[in-house]
Amino acid sequence: MSAHQHAEGQLPHEPEKATLEGRNKVLGFWIFLGAETVLFGTLFSAFIALRHQVLDGPTAQHLFELPMVFASTMILLTSSLMSVFAVQAMHNNKVKAMIGWLLITILLGLAFLGLEITEFNTYVKEGHTLKTSAFSSSFYTLVGFHGAHVAFGVLWIGLLIAQILKKGLTVVTAPKIYLSAIYWHFIDVVWVFIFTVVYLMGKVG
């Protein structure tokens, strides 16, 4: 029960925090994100230590193309803003607008994945496979894990849209929308470090 009196059937302000269960979900999710930080951090540490070990394979300078990385970065950054708008629409109780923003979010997520698949495909053709060198293994593990998180996010938000269409926006479904947005921002935050450490530093040498 919310501390405030609300008219029957009306959604409370900030419905994601209106119930104890909702607040607990938010707290639990942040602890999960702390663990995710460690997961990505350890993959980063392996990559940073091994990024010059290319053996006979192509080097980072040879492989990476900045325009493509920049395009991916813009797509993910924009989709992060779109999920901010989705949460704001939720706070204004505009369910249709919220679903619209969520749809744009996952479309941009799919565009990002498409670019990543094209990119990996090009690399494999240039002889940069998972087994080529310590550099290539740590590269695919780190960037691939991030890509898998994007794919999971797309799936998750897609299912949430279906659930909203079926059950509507309630104090039970609202925390899920809020947390999927937090998750999506986290994925974008990880990407900031990936384009910095993997691509830009790789290009510098």
């Binding site: 702390g34 663990a35 930080t37 460690v38 951090g41 980063f44 540490s45 940073i48």
Partner: peptide
Amino acid sequence: GVLVVFSAV
């Protein structure tokens, strides 16, 4: 999490 990451790196 960040603390663990720093020590891991």
